[in-house]
Design a protein around this nucleic acid. Structure first.
Lengths: 186, 186
DNA sequence: GTGAACATGTAACAAGTTACATGATTGA
DNA sequence: TCAATCATGTAACTTGTTACATGTTCAC
């Protein structure tokens, strides 16, 4: 999924400026599974306006550049539906944190403890933010999506709390050379 | 985290060819939070060999190109530790599936049902593969990491099973225009 | 005899991020 | 007075993916 579709999806909820789109992706209800920067949002909006997928009206401002408030058009909605209709690709999850934990043996234990603690706190904060969003309600889709995020974060957090100690038990046989490449499919 | 660090981390477990690194990232125990393609692995390995972070011995093969079996060096290990010591960036989760669910209103219900069903089956399969990996054991780090993945997938799967129906209830007030951009921090 | 697995490598391309440029206002 | 928020936009840069090139063996 590209930034274009992302913008169309957000504009489907309500008209917005590029700035607002960025903010809603950064702090809003969906920040846990979506991402985009100004450098990709602004060009996408400009191009889609040329193509008739969105329109905008300008609002003059004091000092700041004119505000461009974008709305999705019928053509844009059609394009959005088309994009949403192709089978979604599998979820992508990338975690530097887990990679560090995987190789925890190589690092001093106090450092591991610190990293673990910090990640726990981050997740606690994110979960709380999500629950606050969930409490505000919204339509079916957003409730479902926020609920999913909360479920995942809860599970992750609980796992860290209950299993973090694994990284410190002194079963120091070094790394296991036999099972790394073994997949269940083999 | 870049492909270089990724390769060093895997070589820390055991020597391997570029091909094997790719496979272990694709099907191995850690495929749920790591990713890399041949097009990034091979150049990384070549360059790191030039820099002395890894070494390799060649094994002649019939028909196939010579096998290059890479090992991490002391310098490589130092570089790995250095890379692992900088604070890990927050986890990144991207989900086209959730984005489609967010906008489920726009699509025919049978289609949503199909997408939901497919994602459920995919996750069920992935979870099973992960549990098989977990059963094989491994050192602390890998157990922790595989366990984390399993916990997350279990939670996600359970959520889909228990809440999928939300997307079909006929509370058709359209999309909610008021709560989209509202973050908990505001 | 057809496709998958094995095995390496490159070049063109895609997509997005970072950093910069500009500048008023507002709160700590 | 210093940082943050509001507001748009561009250009250079990173990073990695996709597709191609090559060729054998093995299982169905």
């Amino acid at each position: 999924m590209n930034v274009r579709t992302l913008c169309l999806g957000i504009l489907q909820f309500s008209e917005a400026t590029g700035y607002e789109i960025k903010k809603s992706v950064e702090n809003g209800m969906f920040n846990h599974f979506i991402e985009a920067s100004y450098g990709s949002i602004y060009p996408a909006l400009t191009r889609m306006a040329e193509e008739g997928l969105v329109t905008f009206r300008e609002e003059a401002q004091n000092g700041k550049p004119d505000k461009k408030i974008y709305s999705i058009t019928a053509a844009g909605r059609a394009e959005l539906v088309r994009a949403l209709s192709t089978a979604p690709r599998g979820d992508k999850f990338k975690s530097e944190f887990l990679f560090v934990m995987l190789l925890a043996d190589l690092l001093p234990k106090p450092h591991i403890a610190a990293v673990l603690h910090q990640r726990t706190e981050e997740m606690r904060a994110e979960l709380e933010a999500m629950r606050a969003c969930a409490a505000q309600g919204g339509h079916n889709g957003s409730q479902f999506v926020v609920g999913y995020g909360a479920a995942i974060f809860e599970a992750g957090l609980r796992y860290l709390e209950e299993n973090g100690h694994m990284l410190f038990s002194t079963d120091d046989a070094g790394v296991d050379r036999s099972t790394l490449n073994t997949s269940a499919a083999e």
